[in-house]
Design a protein around this nucleic acid. Structure first.
Lengths: 181, 181
DNA sequence: GTCAACTGCAACATTGATGTAGCAATAAAT
DNA sequence: ATTTATTGCTACATCAATGTTGCAGTTGAC
């Protein structure tokens, strides 16, 4: 593969992710146009629409997996691991804004990978519960859902907040809440 | 209009909202089939796809508006109004799970109504800030986003939790967070 | 019982998206 | 300079979704 080909492929993936996030039914033609390449070129790279989606998901899963690895969720102290995870995952959510939960259902392989990553995070949340970092009356599944919701919110609705500050905001809201206590 | 016609219309709207929430590109044929009516019947009720979407949005906006009215966001004490709003809005989110922010962009009228409702809630959040119910370092827009995220999360990912308990969970996570302090 | 409204069904036209193939032009690699 | 890979463009076939029409059957209202 030549250099320009690789550049085009990556451009299509990123542009596609952005457009598909706004409108999951965005046409291949629209993605190609936004990426600045011809429609047929996209079809040469990706056998069909599914293949394009799979490639986008895989790119997101790759990035997310790297973040999970580097956060050392099982070894590092909970507050440290949490912050490292947040600082890593927020840029991933921004770069690949596609909603993996909804759009990957037809792709069993990607779905399985996603489940595995989800399980790693859930295990971490459970550890946070067990080690007393969360209140005893908090359900682990609820805590997990809250964390995901906060990440998505800061990632997509506040793109101007840089990753370290965003991680602070999320960790703070997650652990302390927003009210005066 | 006869009784069965009204029943069918309402059934199409609710079924459509449910399917469109899972997959915004769900076909009219799929919605009609899930609602148990013929495809042409749906076309008789709604001139086109846009009209069907508009009707769904309008139904959601009507319900949400009623909740905002009854919560007395400007008069009632903040904690009371917050809880009343949550207990009302969570069933609305569940009954009409469509993502209004994304899907109403092509409908300026509905978009304007949505903006107006959004502004009412933002004003309420601002009052909560001003009256000292939120920490002084909390940005009102961030607080607003967190509240929305928590509502969506409990509404869609924990459908088994009933509305009063769900409202408690959200208000608690919003004000106090999940961590030990 | 009659009438009006409503429905399902079949058929049809239209449109937009998808996917393929061929060909000429271009640019990197050798 | 020649080869090779890649691209844009055009044309085409296909398919799924949309929207319309006519007709016969059913059901509620009067």
């Amino acid at each position: 593969m030549r250099a320009d080909a690789a550049r085009n492929l990556s451009s299509v993936l990123r542009t596609g992710a952005r457009l598909l996030a706004e409108d999951p039914s965005t046409s291949m033609a629209a993605i190609a146009a936004a990426a600045g390449v011809d429609r047929t070129t996209v079809h040469r790279r990706f056998a069909n629409r599914e293949a394009l989606l799979r490639a986008v998901f895989q790119a997101k899963l790759d990035s997310a997996e790297r973040v999970l690895d580097e956060a050392r969720l099982t070894e590092a102290p909970v507050p440290v691991a949490l912050h490292r995870y947040l600082e890593g995952i927020i840029p991933v959510a921004r770069e690949w804004p596609v909603d993996t939960r909804r759009m990957m259902q037809k792709d069993p392989e990607a779905s399985a990978r996603r489940e595995a990553q989800s399980a790693r995070l859930s295990t971490f949340i459970q550890r946070a519960c067990d080690e007393g970092h969360l209140r005893a009356d908090i359900d682990a599944a609820w805590a997990r859902a809250v964390l995901d919701a906060l990440v998505d919110s800061i990632a997509h609705q506040f793109p101007a907040v840089d990753a370290p500050q965003a991680a602070d905001l999320v960790a703070d809201a997650f652990l302390r809440g927003l009210g005066v206590t």
